[in-house]
Design a protein around this nucleic acid. Structure first.
Length: 284
DNA sequence: ATGCAGGGACGAT
DNA sequence: ATCGTCCCTGCA
């Protein structure tokens, strides 16, 4: 018997779930950097109100994947009792459909680092190489275009606090600029093909590739496994194998393939609920 | 103070 | 297939 859970969409929970980084709150209003525009939402009497600068009608539908059949997806995920419980608790959590280039740059910066540091790096990049815009009288910066990024030297990237990640950011920028990496094409490609292409880029391993595939390239079967997900799987799914928190490339692929089989073609949703749950109580 | 962890990936054994 | 290293910051 399927419980009639009310899964009202909660954008606040969603932008705070670690899948996007450049969101912050100002007086009950939330502002986020979404590629070349700034998205805003605020709670109103009946739900949330969205807007974007420059104006894009219905930006929330695309950005928060409101076009997904969440009831159908939830029903599929509820076959797993643990996920069913998490859906009950965190029903407002959704996946986002981020700007692909921003998403790729973001997660290339995310290796071996914590969320506050990621935010710091990305805001610095935006401030130095994005475009300054004013929203509600406040200064914001769009995310730098790939063209803008490819014009920045590795040492200047390091000066943004990127550390050794500067080399990878440079590689991504050059890949996009040269046409070697065509993100729009990868959006239309299948999961395996798109992942294979992403892995060719220096600094992009299986975990980061899966994040980009899931959060920006519409590959809902992608199942990124970071240390937290690895812990969750080890704690709740013995049958998925007894690997440690650190996974080798082969272990990663075996584990994420098993997860895809278990959670289904929308495994990425399950991953996000698991991640959010594991991060409860942690602060960033 | 010194060590360690924080949404990993790469290069050398 | 394992293991050290990469840059940097906050915290115990």
């Amino acid at each position: 018997m399927r419980s009639s859970v009310i899964r009202s969409f909660d954008p606040e929970m969603t932008v705070n779930s670690g899948q996007a980084f450049l969101w912050h709150q100002v007086n009950k209003n939330w502002y986020g950097v979404h590629g070349d525009c700034i998205v805003k939402f605020s709670k109103s009497a009946d739900g949330f109100e969205f807007s974007s600068f420059p104006e894009r009608k219905g930006v929330e539908r695309d950005l928060f994947r409101l076009d997904d059949d969440i009831d159908s997806i939830s029903a599929e995920m509820s076959l797993d009792p643990l996920i069913a419980g998490l859906l009950n608790t965190y029903g407002g959590l959704r996946l986002m459909r981020q700007d692909p280039a921003q998403c790729l740059f973001s997660f290339v910066c995310a290796s071996n680092i914590n969320i506050p540091m990621i935010r710091k790096m990305l805001y610095t990049l935006a401030k130095r190489y994005g475009q300054k815009v004013f929203v509600d009288g406040m200064e914001f910066h769009t995310f730098p275009s790939p063209e803008a990024m490819s014009g920045v030297s590795e040492s200047d990237l390091r000066a943004c606090g990127l550390g050794y990640r500067a080399k990878a950011v440079k590689a991504v920028a050059q890949g996009i600029e040269s046409g070697t990496l065509d993100l729009a094409l990868l959006k239309k490609a299948g999961y395996a093909d798109a992942k294979q292409e992403l892995l060719k880029i220096y600094g992009v391993g299986p975990k980061i590739a899966d994040c980009v595939l899931l959060f920006s390239l519409d590959k809902l079967e992608a199942f990124p496994i970071d240390v937290w997900i690895a812990r969750a799987l080890a704690a709740h799914y013995d049958w998925l194998g007894k690997f440690g928190e650190k996974l080798t490339a082969r272990q990663y692929e075996a584990l994420s393939e098993s997860a895809r089989k278990h959670f289904g073609c929308h495994a990425g949703y399950a991953q996000q609920y698991l991640y959010y749950h594991m991060r409860q109580g942690k602060k960033w």
